[in-house]
Design a binder for these strands. Structure first.
Lengths: 142, 142
DNA sequence: TATTGTTATACTCTATAACTATA
DNA sequence: TATAGTTATAGAGTATAACAATA
């Protein structure tokens, strides 16, 4: 692949990888009929229970209006609880229900298989190296 | 950053990086009033002159209909030439004009600065490592 | 019958602006 | 005056389907 002047650029490569993975992820998740980003948000709620919608949006890299529809649907399906904070009644404290945790686990098991070709190509060691490098990139763009 | 079950996943990180870089790239490129993807396409034409639109679309990871509008605008601005192949009259052979090469160089100089924070955070050595790892990921998803 | 380029169309993802209720 | 959540809206990016010209 000859990228010309982009030979050493991250941007076009991030775009290609993102597009390929998100297309596959959408296809795998379709039967669940959840809004896009739901799995990411459920994983973040699981890892950071009691977060507000704004905090989750910040973690997920989404605007807060995008979070509303996701939480609406997850709440309707009884996958998360959205409870007005007693100490600050503007806030919603979001938590995963048992049912939500189950569904997250099941869906993640399917979605994570999408990255199997990457694991196979890189091996565990280089994959960890890549993840660490990407985290440093993410931090540098904050 | 606690990603929960996505702790070792490439997908969410690729999404965050792509979103951050593309938003900045759109802002920097806006004064040029070119269709999105034009710089990528010009770089690919420069590196692979005489390619067809379909070949360029394949390289750029775009659908061929997306390429039509990009080439339309680039041709109108006299940045590329679109010539019916004499050996296969279905094909357009695409090449960059001198003017196109100049504009590509100038725009790339601006856009590439977007990745300066990444370079600063990683250093030349780790950046090269990252690019090579990403190329292996891209190849694994073909 | 297959392929290149094209047109028309639609959908996904994401953001911005303006509002409300609370602080 | 500022913040959390919400509603309404718009735009960027990309894809699919159907078609004409050519192979």
């Amino acid at each position: 692949m000859n990228w010309g002047v982009f030979e050493k650029s991250i941007g076009p490569r991030a775009r290609l990888i993102h597009n390929a993975l998100s297309a596959r992820s959408i296809a795998v998740s379709a039967p669940y009929e959840l809004p896009t980003g739901s799995l990411t948000v459920m994983a973040l709620i699981d890892a950071n229970p009691g977060s507000s919608q704004a905090e989750l949006a910040g973690l997920a890299g989404l605007a807060t209006p995008s979070m509303v529809g996701i939480i609406d649907e997850l709440e309707k399906r009884e996958l998360v609880t959205r409870i007005r904070s007693s100490t600050d009644r503007r806030r919603n404290d979001i938590a995963l229900t048992d049912k939500g945790h189950e569904l997250m686990t099941a869906l993640f098991a399917e979605v994570s298989r999408i990255e199997d070709p990457i694991k196979d190509a890189l091996g565990a060691k280089d994959l960890k190296l890549l993840v660490d490098l990407l985290d440093r990139v993410v931090a540098s763009l904050k």
